[in-house]
């Protein structure tokens, strides 16, 4: 092989790998990114049930209810709108009423946000950007 052919082989391989990677990235960007919404954005956008998103806002004081077997219900508010959230599991250490929270999940048919993860505001000097903006 001449120097030129070798260089072409190399460039060819690189292009193939890059093309595969680009395909994977584009595919993943379409399917596996999660949008962030506040309760008022949810109302505005008419998000349908089943569509996953991240919900951010403040836990409305007095809304936290603990049910059987670690079921938790609370309401997330952002000043203009509220959204009921249902979660099952252990809440993070820093979860408190009146504090910022980010939950990931989807709306169910009755308009309740079923969360499978709940993240809380980290501490008084750090706030997740989503929460700070919300």
């Amino acid at each position: 092989m001449t120097r030129k052919q070798r260089r072409l082989t190399l460039i060819g391989c690189a292009l193939v790998v890059l093309a595969i990677a680009a395909g994977l990235v584009l595919n993943a960007l379409r399917d596996s990114i999660v949008f962030f919404s506040t309760p008022s954005m949810v109302a505005e956008k008419h998000l349908g049930p089943g569509k996953r998103f991240r919900l951010g806002g403040l836990v409305q004081p007095g809304s936290l209810q603990r049910g059987d077997n670690l079921a938790v219900n609370f309401t997330v508010a952002d000043g203009s709108a509220t959204l009921p959230v249902a979660y099952k599991g252990i809440l993070p250490d820093l979860f408190r009423e009146g504090q910022g929270v980010v939950a990931e999940g989807a709306l169910d048919a009755s308009g309740v946000f079923r969360a499978d993860t709940v993240l809380a505001k980290h501490d008084e000097t750090y706030m997740p950007k989503d929460v700070a903006d919300a």
Partner: peptide, 8 residues
């Protein structure tokens, strides 16, 4: 605002 998590 979006979040790119583990699935990506």
């Amino acid at each position: 605002k979006i979040s790119v998590g583990a699935p990506f």
